[in-house]
Design a protein around this nucleic acid. Structure first.
Lengths: 339, 339
DNA sequence: CTGAAAGCGCTTACAG
DNA sequence: CTGAAAGCGCTTACAG
């Protein structure tokens, strides 16, 4: 016993010390295992003496359940992803599931990343980033591993998806700016690879056209960043007839736009220009911005995700769950006259 | 073959189809395994046909390496934790390590959480939140599992820790406000359970006393939040002789304070009140705040963490690595006269 | 309730 | 390079 034992005690060691079979050790560490209280106690005492820690990997091989949910998120956590990850980890912890976090470095990596998830025998896969190939989707399904896309959607892909209703969100935003007296609109957009960007934009354009407002909307690329939104706002406001209402398709771009409009252009918000964002990140509520926005329903999204990764539930027809948008009216938009 | 096989193919299935031994299958999937190209190809073909995915758990039992690093973070990701997690996941991915993310719901849970980590046979543990008990630290050490505290430090605990030098940070902040002409100072602090809060505060008080400035500093509790910082600023500024210089011991509290000072009190920053923060979160650089701050060296912290979890490296004497503070001077503090 | 035995999916000396 | 066999740490019918 004086030699440094880097070897870890296993169930055989514990069984020997306790004078029982290894089956008894297993039962002592299995909730509800059929074992007498005395024997359980004897095993636990021996285990404590040996610093025994059960090897979950070994039991998982046999039970075919790891209790691990794989999460695929982009390496750069913007505030929306951070909120989503926060909420997901909280709720998964509550239901006793482990999280294996994957952050693929580049888009070519996705398939290999999914492969690694399967090698770890994860019980379910939640994709918060990235399109996945239909080949991998099929592979997961074939192994009864449910896949849920969180906040993104790939049409014709046979996996579940949960997200905010981007169409509803865009419509509500457009309606608010319109009823606030907006006449000339501008959009700060992002990469068209994000379905929610595309859909928010489409809904805005459709609603404005429907209501007889502008047909052709100026659109500037805000690159999904603060700096991008800042630059895009300057671009939009440059013309002869600049917008009196600006949609930032994410809050962080809208916030960049607000800073450009106020501090670079010296204009007032919302008197000269109304600004609306999407997501409701924490910063939107800060007094310097007080940004009107359409909330991304993080909590509900995660709630639905949880039901879809339940053992049986997730294996039927792929479900697409869309959660209605909630408008958060703050001070960056003009008041709407009472109807 | 027409029946739905929910059973997943294993190496025996592949071996049979390829007409080889299971050892050959193992070798075909082991980089550098001694196997002829032809046989490897034959195995891979069979594997593809069967949608075979190697079971990492089984191999980990034998090799005694999981390639998994456990990360312990609080469930509510503030911006600093989000940045730390982001950087850590990025760098761990680069070196081919998996992340098992744990977010204990309450402080009583820490020991049980660490226990679960060990059950998963993780190769290393990185603690971004929470004090851990010395009993658990000893257990990890006894199993040759290196433990690294990231951004926090518990004195007399036998684990590695990597963090910013809070003393240096506090000193540099105090020096800047002092040289900017500050006369009356106030501190917006947080829970004294955070070592970095305590140490930043201590360093500020010490440096101001040393330089013959105020002895007794008014301190208000900012609760580590925007709203808390907002309220704390109002509290500090209420007296007859309010501060002309405010330390927000985290950026988010400093930002809340700025909003209170400007929008509630109608004072100018930095003319009436200078404000300095700590951490350098993204928002600090946004034009509405333009907050002078002392950066938390996230990148370097993660870099050091990586070296400490290297197989051999992490097992010697516990190391405490402190990274010097970097002052980021922006517009929320008064200019310092040239020496 | 208890234990001996078979087995989960894999790796690794060992002998060829 | 290749395979038969032993073994990693555990669970689970099975028989008592």
């Amino acid at each position: 016993m004086s030699r440094k034992r880097s070897t870890r005690a296993n169930s055989t060691d514990v069984a020997r010390l306790a004078g029982v079979s290894i089956a008894a050790v297993s039962r002592a560490f299995t909730p509800g295992g059929s074992i007498s209280p005395e024997m359980a106690e004897r095993v636990r005492t021996a285990a404590r003496q040996l610093n025994y820690v059960p090897n979950t990997l070994a039991s998982s091989i046999i039970t075919r359940r790891t209790n691990i949910v794989a999460l695929l998120f982009p390496p750069l956590l913007n505030q929306v992803f951070a909120a989503l990850l926060s909420e997901a980890s909280l709720r998964l912890e509550e239901v006793g599931k482990q999280i294996l976090l994957f952050t693929p470095l580049d888009e070519d990596d996705f398939d290999r990343t999914l492969q690694r998830m399967l090698e770890f025998q994860v019980d379910a896969i939640v994709v918060g980033a990235a399109p996945i190939s239909s080949r991998m989707a099929a592979l997961c399904l074939g192994r009864d591993v449910p896949v849920v896309m969180l906040g993104r959607h790939v049409p014709n892909l046979s996996v579940h998806s949960v997200r905010g209703n981007a169409d509803d969100a865009g419509t509500k935003a457009a309606d608010l700016l319109l009823r606030g007296g907006g006449r000339r609109f501008g959009i700060i957009s992002g990469p068209q690879t994000f379905s929610k960007i595309v859909e928010r934009q489409k809904a805005i354009v459709r609603h404005l056209a429907l209501k007889g407002a502008q047909d052709e909307l100026p659109v500037a690329d805000g690159k999904m960043t603060y700096d991008g939104g800042y630059a895009a706002a300057l671009e939009l406001m440059r013309g002869d007839d600049p917008p009196d209402s600006v949609f930032g398709l994410t809050d962080i771009m809208a916030i960049g736009a607000m800073d450009a409009i106020r501090h670079e252009l010296g204009l007032r918000i919302p008197e000269d220009v109304a600004v609306i964002g999407f997501d409701d990140i924490a910063e939107a509520a800060h007094k310097s911005y007080d940004l009107t926005t359409v909330r991304t329903p993080v909590r509900q999204m995660v709630q639905h995700m949880l039901t879809l990764i339940e053992p049986g539930a997730g294996l039927g027809e792929p479900q697409t769950i869309e959660i209605d948008a909630q408008l958060i009216v703050r001070g960056s938009t003009r008041a709407v006259p009472a109807a």
